[in-house]
Simulated scan of single mutants.
Amino acid sequence: MYGYPVNYVHWPLPVQDGGRRRAVDTTDRSLAAEILQAVHREERAGNFYTRLAELAPTENVKVLITIIKDERLKHLQNFSQLYSRLTGREPQLLREPVPAPESFQRGVELAIRDELEAVDSYRDIVERATDPRIRRAFQRAAEDEQRHSTWYANILLSQGSS
């Protein structure tokens, strides 16, 4: 979303399975990679929204952005747990500083684009995943992201921007 590269990790072949070890199949690896990308997306969004909230023109807008940020961080936590369950290891977070947007309006425009891209990405995961926990988590996240994009669009409209 913000021009940061996605760091790919080397997947461990064995995963604990009730005391037995089994190889992670190609589908699981592909899904794990997509979940890791979602973890990184949520981490970057949370950091970006912290910076965006600092530029908010009113306290009400700042509170709304903080609510959105908190929901994105909740997704980060959920996706991290799913990734750990699937791979047997914790996801490595990027922990990169996120620059402040050049203006509040530009930041909101970037946020809308990221929210809509996340909706598409998460719906793709829902369609491919067979695990009901993964499907539910990403379906809920897609719905949240759709709602967030609407909130950001309303923020732009309330600021007299289109």
Rank of each mutant, 00 (worst) to 15 (best):
K69M: 10
L73M: 13
K74Y: 09
K74S: 14
H75D: 13
L76A: 04
L76D: 00
Q77K: 10
N78W: 11
N78M: 07
N78V: 14
Y83N: 03
Y83K: 06
R85G: 01
R85T: 07
T87G: 03
G88E: 04
R95T: 04
E96A: 03
P97Q: 09
V98E: 02
P99D: 11
E102L: 02
F104P: 00
Q105H: 02
R106F: 00
G107H: 10
V108F: 07
E109S: 01
L110N: 06
L110C: 08
R113D: 02
D114N: 09
D114T: 03
E115Y: 08
E115Q: 11
E115R: 03
L116V: 07
E117D: 15
E117C: 05
A118M: 09
V119Y: 15
V119H: 13
D120M: 12
Y122F: 13
Y122L: 13
Y122P: 07
I125P: 04
E127T: 12
E127Q: 15
E127V: 14
E127Y: 11
A129N: 05
T130K: 15
T130W: 11
P132V: 08
I134L: 00
I134N: 06
R136K: 15
A137W: 05
A137C: 03
R140N: 14
E143P: 07
D144R: 12
H148L: 12
S149M: 09
I155W: 04
I155K: 02
L156F: 08
L156I: 08
